[in-house]
Design a protein around this nucleic acid. Structure first.
Length: 109
DNA sequence: CGAATGACCAAGC
DNA sequence: GGCTTGGCCATTC
């Protein structure tokens, strides 16, 4: 295991925990998660935390429910976006052109 | 400590 | 609707 920042400590744990709190069939933006952590401008850090999300936790953390501002699926390398789309659809979240309707599936204030 | 990186965001053109 | 710019944050080198 890397002796650098671990998934179970500090910032990571906070991010993963917040993401875990997203109800099924709903989505949250990176900015919203960041705000929940007390970092209203830390959306980027949240995206980075999910980028290093270990596969072991991926089964337990609904990372696919986190989208960019406006409900767009973040474009990244690999099959990530496709799998995210499929998982969202499986939960009943309608994905239109790589984008989700936040008015409908977004987190209630 | 300075510079670079990335699943971001808002504002401008 | 698409590209660019500046700003934010945590981590890595």
């Amino acid at each position: 295991m890397s002796r650098s920042a671990r998934a179970g400590d500090g910032f990571f744990a906070a991010v993963y925990q917040a993401v875990r709190a997203i109800p099924r069939g709903r989505v949250a933006t990176y900015g919203q998660v960041a705000r929940a952590l007390g970092l209203p401008r830390g959306a980027r850090a949240v995206g980075w935390a999910l980028r290093v999300l270990p596969a072991t936790l991926a089964t337990r953390v609904p990372w696919h429910r986190v989208v960019s501002a406006g409900g767009r699926i973040a474009p990244r390398a690999g099959l990530g976006p496709l799998r995210q789309r499929q998982r969202l659809l499986a939960e009943g979240v309608r994905v239109r052109k790589g984008q989700v309707d936040m008015k409908r599936y977004g987190m209630p204030a």
